[in-house]
């Protein structure tokens, strides 16, 4: 039982990281039918902005973080939308898939070429002191990451449901044409979504990197898992992505311990296939009203 609890708690902590990455996927999908295959790299990059600030420019950590937020919003939010997504949107999903895969390669190789191929330690935002909770070892950092992920989702839901801009964004996601007729500035709403995604990517990056270490290739594994989490949870629901992320984190640990370590990564894949066949809208998703 102790073992199970330990696996469960550790899985939740890792899963909350997956969830942060997965939320971005669902946001972009809702707002603009963008499947972002570079999402993993979006989370890899901001940590390097911070490191570049502290190591090369000699900035203090908080200043470097502030600059990294701005850079992330500009490049991963505004730039990504203006330069890549806007021109591609009229051509459907496939060119976007290809272009974002290429973008992922570009970001990965860019970091490797201009920064380093080595993994770098990243300063922890929270103490990694270990607490003993009901026989399971869990660090302060794990708890903080979990709380921040939950907090981010709660805030987002509040924002989307409780503010005018939020409701306009939802309207845009549900039916851009009607929203436009009703006077919603659709283009600006879509931009907000991209900015939120960039902000979440930054948040995920600084939370993950102390645990995961900053490395150019981090996005490869992370992107795929986040992607699976988003689909399993529900591609069109923020809380679906949260549930999907947490579920994958826990399932990964449980299957490694109780099924087979060498097939641990097969379990999420099989889950993905079953979910798509049985409940394509995802565990918590609503059936899509819009034909794609």
């Amino acid at each position: 039982m102790n073992t199970f609890f330990q696996l469960f708690v550790s899985g939740l902590a890792t899963g909350s990281i997956y969830a942060l990455a997965a939320i971005g996927f669902t946001l972009l999908w809702q707002a603009s039918q963008t499947i972002n295959f570079a999402q993993g790299e979006f989370i890899m990059l901001p940590a390097f902005f911070v490191l570049a600030g502290t190591q090369f420019l000699g900035l203090s950590f908080p200043v470097a973080m502030a600059i990294a937020v701005v850079l992330s919003l500009l490049l991963l939010g505004l730039g990504f939308k203006r330069i890549i997504i806007d021109p591609l949107l009229p051509h459907g999903v496939l060119p976007i898939v290809i272009a974002t895969i290429a973008l992922g390669i570009l970001m990965k190789e860019g970091v490797k070429q201009f920064y380093t191929a080595e993994a770098l330690p990243f300063p922890a935002l929270f103490s990694d002191r270990t607490l003993n909770v009901l026989g399971a070892a869990i660090s302060v950092q794990d708890i903080a990451v979990l709380l921040i992920a939950l907090g981010a989702v709660a805030l987002l839901q509040l924002f989307l449901n409780g503010t005018k801009i939020g409701r306009c964004m939802q309207a845009t996601a549900q039916n851009p044409n009607v929203a436009e007729i009703l006077g919603v500035p659709v283009r600006r709403m879509i931009l907000y979504t991209f900015l939120i995604n960039a902000g979440l990517a930054f948040l995920a990056s600084v939370l993950i990197s102390p645990i995961y270490l900053a490395k150019f290739s981090n996005g490869e594994t992370l992107g795929l898992i986040a992607f699976i989490a988003a689909i399993v949870g529900g591609f069109n629901q923020i809380r679906g992505a949260l549930a999907g992320g947490l579920l994958l984190g826990v399932i990964d640990n449980l299957s490694a311990a109780y099924v087979s370590a060498s097939y641990r990564s097969a379990v999420p894949l099989i889950l993905l296939i079953i979910i798509i066949l049985v409940r394509p809208q995802g565990l918590l998703g609503k059936a899509e009203g819009r034909t794609v």
Binding site: T3, Q6, L7, S10, G11, A13, T14, I17, I211, Y212, S217, N218, E220, T221, L222, G249, D252, N253, L254, A256, A257, A261, S262, R264, S265
Partner: peptide
């Protein structure tokens, strides 16, 4: 005899097996 994946994030299950 505990195998893990390249890029694996969570080693909780691995360590439990080693420990036990």
């Amino acid at each position: 005899d505990v195998s893990s994946e390249v890029g694996q994030a969570d080693f909780a299950a691995d360590v439990i097996k080693l420990k036990s």
